[in-house]
Amino acid sequence: MTAAALSHTVTLSCQDDVATARRLARSIALELGFDAFAATAVTTATSELARNVVVHGGGGFMGVEMVRDAGRVGLALTFHDEGPGIENLERALQGGYSTRRSLGLGLSGSRRLVDSFDIDTAPGAGTRIRIVKWKRR
């Protein structure tokens, strides 16, 4: 899998940044030719994960890349924060678990919306999540 030239970074420090991240993900997905279902899926995952960065991670940033693999085209998004990290990752990924209101299904839900979901976190060490959504052929 190779990253193409197209790449962006979005600062995530407040609510408006979450909206910016969401709009950017949607416009790039549509530009890459994603159908409405795939575009909405990746946009919704972006909304959940960008919000987590702002609410739980104390802010951070989102990296955006277009990726190609064996003729497929996809959108890769990476969410970084230097927050407290996720203490009970297994439980958080099962869903229904939240230390704050409404976010219990955000992490587990966004994982189900994308084709790959890699998370790197430890207590006190921040969180980095990389998701990839491929365009349906």
Binding site: A36, F37, T40, A41, L105, S108, G109, S110, R112
Partner: peptide, 14 residues
């Protein structure tokens, strides 16, 4: 609710 929104919410388990 749009069809893609309904699809996405159910996929997330919501």
């Amino acid at each position: 609710m749009r069809p893609d929104v309904a699809f996405t919410l159910v996929q997330m388990g919501f």
